[in-house]
């Protein structure tokens, strides 16, 4: 079952004094299935946030269509079941963490004891109980991010939209948030999260959409996407004669000397052949590691195809 379906979404912004139109989204299409974590990745300025704003009705739609839980973009009735964490969340800095959650809960129509209980739970969950009576103006960026996630969860939403949930967090914080997100999925919730940091997505997401220059260029299971990417390997040999190099002969291997080591660089495809040759010569292998097997390769590849892709609007 599809929770969010974005079909050929186009968005123009008028800019400058002459209101010249700039096309920020040039036909974004993807869908999110119930119960999955969908990673929406792309470089800064690719249109991730704009897509979310269009989905939530903050901005109008120039073309295409959005269906969120079966309703059009920005539909108020749907928002009862949605949690949203904005990018770089800014909240009323005169409120305390607790007051913010209360206000946000009230906007969802949650009141009284139920609300108080929910606030306690969430503060505990995002590890912010100690700061509940502190005004938000005194919060660090990481604390704001946590309280932001807490307010997104206030209504126990079916569908979570998280814009850059990991930004501003230290590694411990990132791990906590990751666990939190995975926990929500375990409860059967659907999550879409955006990021320009690929490791976030790699470790959590079931499916990924790659957006570059206002277009979703690839969607699919993470594994599928990564299959397309050829990864280089580096092998470090200690102090060997250059005989090895000669013997590699017809194999495509780049050789260089680095700090007394010999470094071999080659494609994944010939990994086993290289290992074979090297061990047959009795060379001392210090280490063998993949250079990059990640979405970044995909980014780079796709951006190359998009002829440099438009950057920030």
């Amino acid at each position: 079952m599809i929770v969010l379906k974005v079909d050929n979404l186009i968005k123009d912004y008028p800019t400058g004094f002459l209101r010249k139109k700039v096309r920020v989204l040039k036909g974004v299409s993807f869908f999110v299935n119930r119960g999955e974590i969908f990673g929406f990745v792309g470089p800064n300025g690719a249109g991730k946030t704009t897509t979310f704003k269009a989905v939530l009705g903050f901005v109008g739609i120039t073309g295409g269509s959005v269906s969120i839980m079966g309703r059009p973009a920005g539909d108020v009735s749907v928002k009862k079941h949605i949690g949203y964490l904005p990018e770089n969340p800014y909240f009323y800095d005169y409120l305390t963490g607790e007051e913010l959650l209360r206000y946000m809960g009230q906007l969802h129509g949650i009141n009284g004891k139920a609300l108080l209980k929910r606030i306690d739970e969430l503060l505990e969950k995002v590890n912010m109980t100690h700061a509940r009576k502190v005004q938000l103006r005194k919060y660090s960026k990481g604390m704001l991010q946590r309280i932001g996630i807490a307010q997104a969860l206030i209504n126990d939403p079916e569908f979570l939209i998280l814009d850059e949930p990991m930004s501003g967090l230290d590694p411990i914080g990132q791990r906590e948030i990751r666990e939190l997100i995975l926990e929500e999925r375990k409860k059967g919730k659907t999550i879409i999260l955006s990021s320009h940091i690929l490791s976030d997505v790699e470790t959590m997401c079931d499916r990924v959409g790659v957006i570059i220059g206002g277009r979703v260029v690839r969607t699919g299971e993470l594994g599928e996407l990564l299959e397309d990417i050829h990864t280089d390997y580096e092998m470090l040999l200690r102090d060997t004669d250059l005989e090895v190099v000669d013997r590699l002969g017809d194999l495509k291997v780049k050789v260089e000397k680095r700090a007394g080591f010999i470094v071999l660089r080659f494609d994944e495809d010939i990994k086993s052949r290289v290992i074979e040759v090297v061990s047959s010569l009795g060379a001392d292998i210090v280490s063998l590691y993949p250079l990059r097997k990640s979405l970044e390769g995909l980014f780079v590849k796709e951006m190359g195809q998009n002829s440099g892709g438009e950057q920030k609007r």
């Binding site: 009705g57 904005p86 969340p89 946000m104 906007l107």
Partner: peptide, 14 residues
Amino acid sequence: DKKTVYNIFSKPVR
């Protein structure tokens, strides 16, 4: 300006 509207209107607020 301070983008607090994003919080408001992600809730069921007309």
